[in-house]
Amino acid sequence: MLLIHCPYCDEQRAELEFAYAGEAHIARPDDPAAMSDEDWQYYLFVRANPRGRHHERWRHTHGCGRFFNAVRDTLSDKFEVTYKAGEPRR
């Protein structure tokens, strides 16, 4: 089980308190009507799925309830850093 540091609570807690919320920094389209089918494919379905550094969102469901971002190595599952939503990509 992962140990995850919540940047809002500033505490390291067990994974059971958290919900994974997919890849981070996927921006909603500013002008959906102008998007092509291929743009939609990328926005909705295509994911980086890297073997290595992965930017991802977590939610401290059973804690403060807030979303935050994290960088984790998908080979070792070790977290490099977690940071608050809205902060620039690390």
Binding site: M1, L2, E15, L16, A19, Y20, E23, R47, N49, R51, H54, E56, R72, T74, L75, S76, D77
Partner: peptide
């Protein structure tokens, strides 16, 4: 497991 990983192991829970 809920997260993306290539580690070929999962959590005990």
């Amino acid at each position: 497991d809920q997260y993306v990983s290539y580690s070929q192991r999962g959590a005990l829970h």
